[in-house]
Design a protein around this nucleic acid. Structure first.
Length: 601
RNA sequence: GGUCCCAUAGCUCAGCUGGAUAGAGCACAGGUUUUCUAAACCUGCGGCCCUUGGUUCGAAUCCAAGUGGGACUACCA
């Protein structure tokens, strides 16, 4: 049974070496240890895997070089897959045989899903929430980072064999939504997306800004008349009206609900266009207007358990100071819910909707780190066992050279504008290079979309999730160097070679590997581990950087060696297969980032 | 007051659970195409890895303190 398994699945190189080194240490020094780990040999040295021998000097009472040399000799003599070794100081660099790499290649070259686990093989179900917009303004660059991250993480988790549910929690109710509604009612003169030609979300956003302008004017007036500023902010007629509107909404006032439905529908229509441009989708959408009441039930549970308490002013709170947090208000004095009330309710509802759900991943900016700490802690205290599995995928803010983006002040990079600018840049670059002049208008359009989204997505996803990122609109996103289009270009190049090949024989006999071929195989080998690591750490950046490294390896190979013009038919066919496999891995890796790769560009 | 995040080349970023002379891209200077797509390849330039201590055979990486930047700690979301 065990042997059978070995034949079907070749041992991983690290495992193979681990056993040999373990037995070597035992045989040579009588040392019994499991602390053996390998790292990738740095490219300036020869070898595939490197073992650091410093840790064994104490027990063996020998110099690191000596241990490395003796161990190297042992491996060479006892492990058929070890072809050579060299020692630099205490570093034992091990080269595996060409045979090992070639047989590895045989197992992956025909596997289109190489690097991915069998679909839904872990039995674990994970919900990934992302986007979570307010319905009072269009999406901006901050949302774009959120959306791309969440979508990519969903794909990465899927590739790791989990069942993934992509979800969106739409913040469709509350005082801020009423602001744009009120402004439209007052100043809109019946304007609609149809009458104005404005995209629905932009139209609504316009009135959100209008509200703010008019509101600020009122405050200024009141202050001029001698009112204290804080009081003016509360007493301004527009704010009063807005609060009244929210009250009517909660009461179910028909007229308000109708306006609310109409304007939200405009927004959703607009969002859908943006989501489609970004190439993302959702399996299930939650609306806060549907879930906010559930939160109040949860609060009630907590009260009964004695976990929450009522304060003098009637609000309900929990004391989290023992957990390093503060007192947290979870329900307003007037009985209306706050953000965390809704989030508690939504989480509970989700686990009711999906009984098999194991985990929720929340893609939300790091400004809410504290909020999620409190949320998970409260859910844990309410004895929801799944609370420990909830994860806040916290990402850094996107900043402009001037600082933070502010919707109300209009200093945001609009998502639709950005997408358009990228599209036009891709178009201009493509036309300039003139490599696809024979494309139809449709094909060109598709290519511009692929390349522009590749550039944008890669630009955002290659940066470590938790770090804040700087975006300078004046410096357009690059298409050269460490970018999405660079990787896409390499893929297109490979495809071009493959198209030109008239080879109908795909078999070959190869025994030796060129160092560049070997490096590529070594790179391909790493993919599986990178996918796993990216899944464990929710990190698209790992995938992005991996794809770049492999691309560079391939380009060096492509530049230095020829594929089609190689005269030895065996080598030629092998290189074709290797190139095809590279294209496949790049396609798989980019797919995890939500980026498509073109056949030509 | 409390909690958390960040600091690496002029700029934007890699550097995995500690390991070799700290790496890329952009920018700058130069080179490579009668040959598979030059959105490429190669060379050069460029670094008190914020500071100071500690742990270790070994620290950009781990620990502590400090400095600088940022976020949160609202009956906002």
């Amino acid at each position: 049974m065990w042997l059978f398994y070995l034949i079907l699945r070749p041992m991983k190189a690290e495992q193979l070496l681990f056993e040999s080194v373990k037995s070597g240490l035992k045989t040579l020094y009588g040392l019994d240890t499991n602390t053996i780990s390998f790292q990738k040999t740095r490219k300036e040295f020869e070898g595939d895997f490197t073992l650091v021998t410093f840790p064994y000097t104490k027990e063996t009472k020998k110099s690191p070089e000596q241990v490395a040399n003796e161990l190297g000799a042992f491996l060479l003599a006892n492990n058929a897959q070890v072809q050579a070794f060299n020692v630099v100081k205490g570093f034992l660099n091990i080269s595996l045989s060409s045979g090992f790499w070639l047989s590895f290649f045989e197992t992956v070259k025909s596997n289109a899903r190489y690097g991915f686990q069998k679909a839904q093989s872990t039995g674990k179900t994970i919900m990934v929430e992302y986007s979570s917009p307010n319905t009072n303004k269009p999406l901006h660059l901050g949302h774009v980072r959120n959306i791309l991250l969440g979508y990519s993480v969903a794909r990465i988790l899927d590739a790791n064999g989990h069942t993934v549910i992509k979800t969106n929690l739409v913040n469709d109710r509350g005082i801020h939504i009423c602001k744009s509604m009120l402004a439209w009612e007052k100043f809109g003169k019946g304007e609609t997306p149809q009458s104005s030609g404005l995209k629905g979300d932009h139209l609504v956003g316009k009135y959100y800004v209008e509200f703010d302008k008019a509101y600020k004017k009122e405050i200024a007036q009141l202050v001029e008349q001698g009112t204290n500023k804080e009081i003016a902010e509360k007493e301004a007629p527009l704010m009063k009206e807005c609060q009244e509107m929210l009250r009517l909404w909660e009461k179910g006032d028909e007229k308000v609900l109708k306006l609310w439905n109409t304007m939200n529908a405009w927004v959703y229509e607009g969002f859908d266009v943006t989501y489609k441009s970004l190439g993302v989708d959702f399996d299930k959408i939650y609306y806060e207007s549907n879930t906010y009441l559930r939160g109040k039930e949860v609060v009630q549970q907590g009260l009964e358990k004695g976990l929450f308490y009522k304060k003098e002013n009637g609000s309900i709170a929990i004391d989290l100071s023992a957990d390093g947090l503060d007192e947290k208000i979870i329900l307003r004095g007037d009985g209306t819910s706050v953000y965390i009330t809704q989030d508690m309710g939504t989480a509970v509802e989700r686990f009711m909707d999906y009984p098999k759900l194991n985990q929720i991943v929340y893609t939300v900016g790091n400004e809410q780190d504290y909020h999620f700490k409190a949320l998970f802690k409260i859910l844990e205290k309410l004895n929801y066992t799944w609370a420990k599995e909830c994860y806040h995928l916290s990402y850094g803010m996107v900043e402009l050279p001037e600082g933070k983006m502010k919707s109300r002040e209009g200093t945001v990079v609009d998502a639709d504008d950005l997408i358009e600018v990228m599209y036009n840049t891709a178009k201009a670059t493509t036309e300039e290079l003139g490599k696809v002049d024979d494309f139809s208008a449709e094909e060109l359009n598709a290519l511009y979309k692929t390349v522009s989204m590749g550039a944008l997505k890669y630009f955002i996803l290659k940066v470590d999730t938790k770090k804040k990122m700087l975006f300078d609109p004046k410096e357009s996103i690059d298409f050269n160097g460490h970018t999405g289009p660079f990787i896409q270009y390499t893929h297109a190049r490979i495809k071009s070679v493959l198209r030109k090949s008239s080879e109908n024989e795909s078999s070959y006999v190869v025994t030796d590997l060129h160092p560049l071929e070997r490096e590529i195989l070594r790179g391909v080998y790493d993919f599986e581990a990178v996918v796993e690591e990216a899944g464990n750490t929710y990190s698209p950046a790992l995938i992005a950087n991996y794809a770049y490294e492999l691309t560079k390896l391939f380009n060096r190979f492509y530049h230095d060696l020829s594929i089609l013009k190689e005269e030895d038919a065996n080598k030629r066919r092998f290189r074709l297969a290797l190139s095809a496999n590279c294209a496949q891995v790049l396609n798989n890796a980019m797919g995890l980032l939500g980026i498509q790769v073109p056949e030509r560009m």
